[in-house]
Design a protein around this nucleic acid. Structure first.
Length: 307
RNA sequence: GGGAGUGUCGCAUAGUGGCUAUUGCAGCAGACUGUAAAUCUGUCACCUCACGGUAACGGUGGUUCGAGUCCAUCCACUCCCA
């Protein structure tokens, strides 16, 4: 049996991932696994810069439009689901393409994420209410009490992390840290990671332009459809939350647009921080031709791995 | 020509004469194993890896033990009256 390769197209928002992934998938006559935590959702199209209907028709995409906005999902489920899909793709093809900018979700597929117990609503609410009623310091104390090990590692300023630990403790009756091994899981495929290395200023310019295009492309109408769901987690998303504010009359349209640009830039910055750490990523020139990139891939997939 | 006002780190802003000059934005750097487009942190005059040091509130003088803050004057800009 031939070795299997997963080409993972990563990088910040607006770097051109979608188009590159499609070209690669077409060339290898394979399918795409999307690792984008917002493109899972039906109807979130313009604001997430989802591939167009025409593009989606060119290549089979997985994990696009698979959830309604009131459905919850997480990186752990994604690991399981994505591995299964990859397994199916590798039954008929030696190459698969994954594309996305959600670092945690990508890592879940590539390295695995430790199995945690599922959290019942009660435990989640208990953790949330504990923070709401007692404040940050008490939240820290509670974590120190229930999981002294994690207390030493966790970001004590980040209520989200603290609440997460607590809900696991509450739901399982065990320390959150006892579930963490952080050991990379073996995968039945090789991974080639690539990302475009845009100059920061140029990337920001692309982001600004793309936001303007989204507005022209009826983003506001799209967001309007979700008004009844504005409190859902899926809609706590750049491009949506700002438009909700505008539709609520809290800010002007121009302000909303500027905020979307600003928040997208910040988001891109965070993504870059995340991906910068990954020393296995091949950073490719944004001006490189697709044929050159495919050449590069072919070499990497040869038995000697491009040596 | 007369009168009024403003001038604080890229932009915007705070600053009863008293010690380390606010805060926001932009920028930069970072954390992050189930909300991740989320959440959180640092930095942001100059020198230094750091401890720390040196400056600085348009310019210059002055009052004062002490001035971003008071006074004088000059410069720049804004507004009003001519």
């Amino acid at each position: 049996m031939n070795p299997k390769f997963l080409i993972s197209v990563m990088g910040a928002t607006a770097t051109g991932k979608t188009s590159l992934a499609i070209d690669l998938a077409r060339h290898y006559n394979t399918e795409i696994v999307s690792a984008d935590s917002r493109q899972f959702y039906k109807g979130m199209n313009i604001g997430t810069a989802k591939a167009s209907q025409e593009e989606l028709a060119l290549v089979k995409h997985h994990f696009i439009d698979v959830l309604d906005v009131d459905q919850e999902y997480n990186a752990g489920k994604f690991e399981v689901d994505a591995l299964q899909v990859l397994d199916e793709i590798f039954q008929k093809n030696d190459v698969a393409v994954m594309v996305g900018g959600s670092g945690l979700y990508i890592n879940a597929v590539l390295f695995g994420i430790d199995p945690f117990p599922s959290i019942n609503t009660e435990s989640r609410l208990k953790a949330m209410n504990f923070y709401k009623e007692n404040g940050l310091q008490a939240l820290r104390d509670e974590v120190r009490e229930l999981d002294p090990v994690y207390f030493l590692e966790v970001d004590l300023d980040n209520p989200r992390r603290l609440m997460r630990a607590l809900e696991v403790c509450y739901a399982s009756g065990r320390a959150y840290s006892s579930f963490r091994s952080q050991a990379p899981q073996p995968r039945p495929f090789n991974t080639i990671k690539v990302a475009y290395n845009w100059d920061r200023a140029m990337l920001y310019e692309r982001i600004n332009q793309r936001v303007d295009q989204m507005i022209d492309g009826q983003l506001i109408a799209e967001v309007q459809n979700f008004l009844p769901h504005s409190n859902k987690k899926a809609l706590d998303t750049i491009g949506y939350k700002e438009i909700f504010e505008f539709l609520d009359g809290k800010i002007k349209k121009d302000e909303a647009i500027e905020l979307i640009k600003r928040n997208s830039r910040r988001y891109a910055k965070r993504q870059q921080t995340w991906f910068k750490k990954d020393e296995e990523i091949y950073w490719i020139n944004p001006l490189a031709r697709k044929e050159e990139i495919i050449d590069f891939m072919d070499k990497k997939m040869k038995p000697n791995g491009g040596i």
